[in-house]
C-alpha cells in the first residue's frame, strides 16, 4: 500500500514539474489521465493507468494439444466463483439467461475481424479461451453511471461492485468483446455446488471475470491459470514489469489482441 502511494505521489510530482499544473494532478488522482499524455510530458512515467498492469497470454495451440484443458479451466473458474449453470430442458446451454466468465470460443468468433479467408483448417477446431480483456482503457468503465465497474489502480483489473450495480447494462452495450453477463433471474438455485468462500450474486446485476482478484489477494494465481498446470497454456503476470515471465514471452513471441484498433488496449494476448 505504502509503495503504491509513493509511486503515485512521484508520478503526480513529475507531472507538476512538467508544468501541467493542478488540474492535471487532479485528473491523475482520479485516474483519468491517458498514458500518452503522461508520456508526452514526462518521458519515464508509467506507461499505463495502473501501477501494475496484470495481463494474460493464452497459447491456443497448447489448448489444442491438451484436449479437455479448456473445459477444465472453465469449470475451475465457474465452480470457484459460483457462476450459475443455466440449461435448456434438452441439456444444452440456455443462451438467454447464460452467465459466463470464461469460455471456449471458436477463432472466428473471438477474432471476427481477422481474415477468415483460406486460413489454416486446424484453427477451426481449436478452443480459444475468451474472457474479459481487462482493458487499459475500458469502455465499460467509461459507460457505467455509478462506478460499479471500475479499474483497480494498483493492479489494472477491471472490477465489479455487485452491491452498487443498478443493472442498467450500459457496460454490456459498451463492451466490444461480449465479456459481460447479466443476472436475468436469481442465479442461486442454478449454482451446481456452492463455494462458501466466494459471494453469490443476486438477480439484476452484471458480472464478469475479475482475474481472480480475491485469489491474488491471498497470494494465489487465477483459477484458470492454475487449472492449466505446467502446460503454460495460460501465463499470467504484470505487463508493466519488464522482467516478468509474461513480458518476456510477449517480447519474444508473435501475439495478437482482440480488436486492438478500438483503442481499448486489451491486457490479454493470444498466441495462435
Amino acid at each position: 500500500m505504502d509503495s503504491q502511494r509513493r509511486k503515485f505521489l512521484k508520478m503526480a510530482g513529475l507531472t507538476a514539474v512538467a508544468g501541467m499544473g493542478a488540474p492535471a494532478i487532479n485528473m491523475l488522482l482520479k485516474g483519468e489521465v491517458r498514458a500518452s499524455e503522461t508520456e508526452a510530458s514526462t518521458a519515464p512515467a508509467l506507461p499505463t493507468k495502473s501501477v501494475k498492469r496484470l495481463g494474460m497470454v493464452v497459447d491456443v495451440n497448447k489448448f489444442g494439444a491438451n484436449p479437455g484443458l479448456a473445459q477444465k479451466c472453465v469449470e475451475a473458474c465457474h465452480s470457484i466463483h459460483n457462476v450459475p449453470d443455466f440449461r435448456n430442458p434438452d441439456g444444452s446451454i440456455d443462451k438467454k439467461d447464460e452467465v459466463k466468465w470464461i469460455w471456449a470460443e471458436k477463432y472466428e468468433h473471438t477474432f471476427p475481424d481477422a481474415s477468415q479467408y483460406k486460413r489454416n483448417v486446424g484453427l477451426e477446431e481449436l478452443p480459444v479461451m475468451t474472457f474479459c480483456n481487462h482493458c487499459d482503457d475500458p469502455p465499460c468503465v467509461r459507460a457505467c453511471p455509478t462506478q460499479a465497474t471500475f479499474k483497480a489502480k494498483d493492479s489494472g483489473i477491471v472490477m465489479m461492485d455487485y452491491h452498487r450495480c443498478i443493472g442498467c447494462r450500459f457496460c454490456m452495450a459498451a463492451c466490444p468483446y461480449g465479456a459481460r453477463s447479466f443476472n436475468w433471474r436469481d442465479p442461486r438455485p442454478f449454482i451446481k455446488k456452492l463455494n462458501p468462500d466466494f459471494p453469490t450474486r443476486m438477480r439484476g446485476v452484471v458480472e464478469k471475470c475479475t482475474f481472480c482478484a480475491e485469489r491474488l489477494a491471498v497470494g494465489k494465481i487465477p483459477a484458470c491459470v492454475e487449472a492449466t498446470g505446467d502446460t503454460k497454456a495460460m501465463v499470467f503476470g504484470d505487463l508493466n514489469d519488464p522482467n516478468s515471465e509474461i513480458s518476456k514471452i510477449l517480447a519474444s513471441t508473435f501475439t495478437i489482441q482482440r480488436k486492438p484498433f478500438l483503442g481499448t488496449k486489451p491486457s490479454v494476448f493470444y498466441i495462435i
Binding site: K95, R169, A173, G178, F182, R203
Partner: peptide
C-alpha cells in the same frame, strides 16, 4: 422474477 421476465438476453441486452 428479474429482467429474465422479458425477451432480453445476454446478446440482446436492451
Amino acid at each position: 422474477y428479474g429482467l429474465g421476465y422479458t425477451g432480453m438476453s445476454r446478446d440482446v441486452s436492451w
